[in-house]
Amino acid sequence: MSGTITRAEVEHLARLARLALSDDELDRFAGQLDQIIGAVARVGEVAAEDIPPTSHPLPLTNVTRPDVVRPGLTQAEALAGAPAAEDGRFRVPRILGEEA
């Protein structure tokens, strides 16, 4: 398991993560991420075929609480931090492409 990541892969991953990157960032991150992935790939040295994975430090399942109504945010509070709002709603850019 070698830690190699190309500039093209970084560009692809950034697109998946909805993150525009400049050419300069792509150049810099490709080298740094290659080094980091090389270092973290060491987890592969541990023989762990029969070891169960741990996703969380507490063994919890189906935590519930009584279904009691409690005060939430008002509409004005919910919209207070919005970059744009209109008619009491979040105003967002178009969500469909030109061809749709």
């Binding site: 973290v40 987890v43 070891i51 169960p52 741990t54």
Partner: peptide
């Protein structure tokens, strides 16, 4: 996946 197993260890 492997990191989660290391977490168990």
């Amino acid at each position: 996946g492997q990191a989660q197993k290391v977490r168990t260890l």
